[in-house]
């Protein structure tokens, strides 16, 4: 069985991540807020982790509603 792969959405600040969280809850897309992994950034913020297959759905939901900085494979 193939292992589940994750991507993270990085935002300018926690306010943006929380706004994204609210949008994803409404859209019923499974997600988790996690601290930004140290190897990605030394920032102390949080990011949104989703499974890789949901990346396009998430981008579609967030587009025009909340900005993100980048999307990275974990």
């Amino acid at each position: 069985m193939e292992e589940q792969r994750y991507v993270v959405f990085l935002f300018p600040s926690v306010s943006y991540a929380l706004k994204a969280e609210k949008i994803l809850k409404v859209a019923r897309i499974a997600h988790k807020l996690i601290p930004v992994p140290r190897h990605i950034s030394s920032d102390c913020g949080v990011c949104v982790r989703i499974t890789e297959d949901k990346q396009q759905d998430v981008e579609r939901e967030l587009l025009g509603k909340v900005e993100w900085d980048k999307v990275l494979l974990l």
Binding site: S13, S42, C44, G45
Partner: peptide, 9 residues
């Protein structure tokens, strides 16, 4: 200006 929790680096 000061701490915002973001872009702390």
């Amino acid at each position: 200006m000061g701490g915002t929790g973001s872009r702390s680096e």
